[in-house]
Design a protein around this nucleic acid. Structure first.
Lengths: 196, 196
DNA sequence: GGAAGCATGTAAAGTGTTACATGATTTT
DNA sequence: AAAATCATGTAACACTTTACATGCTTCC
């Protein structure tokens, strides 16, 4: 047989959560890398942070794999590229969302780590730490209500409902955490009576 | 002046959360690297995961910095080292816990990421996804109640109370999340009536 | 006698962030 | 006219995980 022509079939690319984040954003109509990062910072950042230095190379890889298509879309002399999902890209995104395999989760919270070891601290400092954590939770509620939810609700009116649901889950979670810290705070205040 | 002798003053080491995790564990009397990793896996793993390949070099660095001391503590012919906090180590740990500067936090949750983009899914698959997430939260409650809390409560009886408090916070959080998913689940079931 | 667990450590690979570099456009 | 924002991309650094490598001890 003669020489085999280079196979145009897209090489099997290993897709990570960050890849699906980008596919999902493109599917929502967010066209440029810069815009993806901006939107991610007020929506997905809280459960999947990302950076520009990840977005641009990943868009390139997704294009190489045939999951997104890229075209020029300059604004005046300022270059810009607009991305769209291909059929393969849409299929890959849906398959990922349907997949029943446990996704990776990772939580790192230096504040809770401090709390875990707080037995080594005098009560006064324990209380101060708990108060800081409570304030932080409270600020999380406020931030989500004022900055995240409104944008998500704008989407909701356009028929895209899950971003707002996720934002509400976040409000609930922070609120419940704040409650819990408030309770611990008064517990520590009570038992601290008389000692300094 | 003659040559200056090598300065025994510990070089200023950059301490990261993982360093304090280890200092905190050593302070609780967990002596060996292997034991630290084992205890971390059933306690701090949920808000600060770590690996053996991090623990051993970090113990070495902490020793070089004079924050822990190491002595041989073999079991028969099997080598083992026992670590203890030095005064500097204790001071560094307490200073970190008292510090009011915001600690780093990072959350990554592929499940929530899926949920965020779930508008692209047919209702049936949305429902399946929400059920999976609910189950996961439920398992988190169970795991914490059955495997994490009991160990923490053993510590509690010995006067170390914060680990159990942190475990209870975790139970609360997962339980509240599970509730929320249950509600979303019935919401989706209702609105799905009649369509397939 | 074999498997599982205890115990220490290293090397390589993978993943991610920060900082850098550049230039256009819009806002103040 | 300067500052902020839009927009793309790279390079260096930091950090983590997985796999490897080794050997003893306890349990079945």
């Amino acid at each position: 047989m003669g020489p085999v022509l280079p196979n145009p079939v897209t090489s099997p690319m290993k897709l990570r959560p960050a890849s699906f984040l980008i596919l999902g954003m493109v599917r929502l109509g967010i066209g440029s890398g810069y815009a993806i990062k901006k939107v991610a910072d007020v929506s997905t950042r809280f459960f999947w942070p990302t950076s520009l230095a990840q977005v641009y190379p990943e868009l390139g890889r997704l294009e190489d794999a045939g999951l997104v298509s890229r075209r020029e879309d300059p604004q005046g002399d300022r270059e810009r590229f607009a991305y769209e999902l291909t059929e393969d890209g849409e299929a890959a995104l849906l398959a990922w969302m349907r997949s029943s395999k446990e996704g990776s989760t990772q939580f790192r919270d230096e504040g809770i780590l401090r709390l875990f070891f707080a037995d080594g601290l005098p009560r006064k400092d324990q209380l101060a730490l708990v108060r800081r954590l409570r304030t932080r939770a409270s600020e999380g509620v406020t931030e989500t209500r004022e900055e995240i939810l409104p944008r998500a609700e704008a989407l909701e009116h356009a028929g895209v409902r899950f971003p707002a649901r996720v934002a509400r889950l976040r409000v609930e979670t922070y609120a419940s955490t704040e409650q819990w810290f408030a309770q611990l705070e008064s517990e520590l205040e009570t038992s601290a009576e008389g000692d300094e």
